[in-house]
């Protein structure tokens, strides 16, 4: 089943909506990390001079599920909010990003210039959220990978500013370029909380293969 069919089927069951947003808020710093079921591990840090854009860098490790290669990519990246819809009880966003860095891998010698680009569309209410995100990784004559991620979330209660927010999330992800065959699906629980120090977001769950899928994010 393709990711888009999977996403479409889920969208029929739940009202639509996001993955972590790459832009926190004006003057805000976002630090995030993801452990993607053994296939991808990523750490990122971004500073947002405006709510419309942020810049920073990251580290990405990609491991083929069959063990045939491993890649390490360090990059600088810029994120742009292309469009935001502020609705009375909802918000929707479209983001795009791109960057450049250096990659090394077990299946080629030395270091290569690595390009990355991507985008995300999301829709969110107090109780439902959905997102569709695509990441593209490229190094000339070395690799091309696309990682598509869809998420649908449901909150059992409408969280307010000062309360712990709890979300149940279904995630579907596909990889190209020999990283993983088929659709990798995961069930996650996500918690976030505001405090004087900033805001923290933690999520963890398990994929259909029994692997850990987790993520954290701090805004301050």
């Amino acid at each position: 089943m393709s990711l888009f069919r999977f996403y479409g089927a889920l969208a029929c069951l739940l009202p639509a909506a996001v993955v972590a947003k790459p832009i926190a808020y004006q003057g805000g710093t976002a630090v995030m990390g993801e452990y993607g079921a053994g296939t991808m591990q990523e750490f990122q840090g971004f500073y947002a001079p405006s709510y419309r854009w942020s810049a920073g860098g990251g580290y990405l490790r990609l491991d083929a599920a069959d063990g045939s290669f491993s890649r390490e990519i360090s990059y600088a990246r810029g994120n742009l909010l292309l469009k935001r819809w502020n609705l009375p009880r909802a918000q929707a966003n479209v983001f795009a990003w791109g960057g450049i860095g250096a990659a090394s891998s077990s299946d080629f010698e030395g270091s290569k210039t690595a390009w990355n680009a991507g985008g995300q569309a999301d829709y969110e209410t107090l109780r439902f959220y959905s997102s569709l995100r695509s990441d593209w990784q490229y190094a000339h004559q070395a690799y091309v990978h696309r990682i598509d991620t869809a998420q649908l979330g449901w909150a059992p209660y409408a969280h307010d500013w000062d309360r712990l927010a709890t979300w149940f999330v279904l995630q579907g992800r596909t990889y190209t370029g020999g990283l993983y065959d088929g659709l990798e699906s995961a069930a996650l629980i996500r918690l976030f909380k505001n405090g004087q120090w900033g805001a923290a977001w933690v999520e963890a769950g398990i994929t259909q293969d029994g692997h850990l899928q987790s993520m954290f994010m701090f805004n301050f």
Binding site: Y51, L87, H159, N219
Partner: peptide, 14 residues
């Protein structure tokens, strides 16, 4: 309008 995410609305309070 658009005030749906505590995580994102942190910027407003700040």
């Amino acid at each position: 309008d658009g005030l749906v995410c505590a995580f994102c609305a942190q910027g407003i309070a700040k």
